[in-house]
Computed example of a mutant assay.
Amino acid sequence: MSSTQQTPQRVALVTGAAQGIGLATAIELLQDGRKVVLTDLRLPDLSALPESLRANAFAQLLDVSDPAACQKLVAAIREQHGSLDILVNNAGISLKNAAGQSNGILDVGLDEVQKMLDINVIAMLRLCQLVLPGMKDKRWGRIVNVSSLAGRGKSIVAGPAYMLTKSAVLGLSRSIASEMGEFGITTNCVAPGRILTQMAMQAGEEVNQRYAQQIPVKRIGEPAEVGAAIRYLCSEAAGFTNGAVIDVNGGFLMG
Score class of each variant (00 low, 15 high):
residue 1 M to K: 09
residue 5 Q to E: 13
residue 5 Q to A: 09
residue 9 Q to G: 00
residue 13 L to W: 09
residue 13 L to P: 00
residue 18 A to S: 15
residue 21 I to Q: 10
residue 26 A to N: 08
residue 34 R to N: 10
residue 35 K to G: 00
residue 36 V to T: 12
residue 42 R to I: 14
residue 42 R to M: 09
residue 46 L to T: 10
residue 55 A to M: 00
residue 56 N to C: 04
residue 60 Q to N: 11
residue 60 Q to K: 14
residue 60 Q to C: 10
residue 62 L to V: 10
residue 71 Q to W: 02
residue 71 Q to C: 05
residue 76 A to W: 04
residue 78 R to M: 02
residue 88 V to P: 12
residue 89 N to G: 05
residue 92 G to T: 11
residue 92 G to C: 07
residue 94 S to W: 07
residue 95 L to I: 15
residue 98 A to V: 07
residue 98 A to G: 06
residue 99 A to K: 14
residue 102 S to L: 00
residue 110 L to G: 05
residue 111 D to W: 05
residue 115 K to E: 12
residue 125 L to R: 08
residue 127 L to P: 13
residue 131 V to A: 04
residue 133 P to Y: 06
residue 140 W to V: 03
residue 140 W to N: 05
residue 145 N to M: 02
residue 146 V to P: 03
residue 152 R to E: 14
residue 158 A to S: 15
residue 161 A to H: 03
residue 162 Y to Q: 02
residue 168 A to V: 12
residue 169 V to Q: 08
residue 170 L to I: 15
residue 174 R to V: 01
residue 175 S to K: 05
residue 176 I to H: 01
residue 177 A to L: 06
residue 180 M to R: 02
residue 182 E to A: 13
residue 191 A to P: 11
residue 198 Q to D: 11
residue 202 Q to K: 11
residue 203 A to Q: 04
residue 210 R to H: 07
residue 213 Q to Y: 00
residue 213 Q to C: 01
residue 214 Q to W: 00
residue 220 I to N: 13
residue 222 E to F: 10
residue 222 E to H: 13
residue 232 Y to N: 00
residue 241 T to D: 09
residue 251 G to C: 09
residue 252 F to K: 14
